[in-house]
Amino acid sequence: MNRRKFLKAGILTIISGLLVTWIVPSFKQTIYKIIATDCAKIKVNRDHIDRFIQEAYQDKFWDRFNTQKKLIIVFFTYLSFTKSFMPYYNKYIMYRGQITGQFLLSTDFFINRMSVNETVEYIQFYNPYKQPCYNPFSNLFYPETA
């Protein structure tokens, strides 16, 4: 590679790197968008979403999503108009459920039986080792199903 080509390749790499950083939203922004969109019709305090995301980082929850999963999540969240035609759509639906689910499990929404009238209170980042026996869909929370 001569000097001119080398410089050209370097400049292109820098520009595309900057474009990716500016244009492609961060994973953190994406999580916020997912939760805010999914919970738009329930009374959720937006600060609680930030707090959840922060606590989830502290608890390394997002480490469960490797780079490939993160890319799928970001891609489908922002290009949703093509989603049902794309491979990995099923996976995206699953991951999205995990993200919003983990947020709502950290609140009192499910304990209040998914009521849309009450303001949702944030409790703490849901960690089953610290909060055992908490599956809000189980028979313990729905004794009438026995």
Binding site: I34, D38, C39, A40, K41, I42, I93, R96, G97, Q98, I99, T100, G101, L104, L105, F110, M114, V116, Y134, N135, P136, F137, S138
Partner: peptide, 16 residues
Amino acid sequence: HNDPYVRSEHGKWRQI
């Protein structure tokens, strides 16, 4: 399976 998974759609959270 019966872990606390949800469906990310308002009003259909556990219709899954």
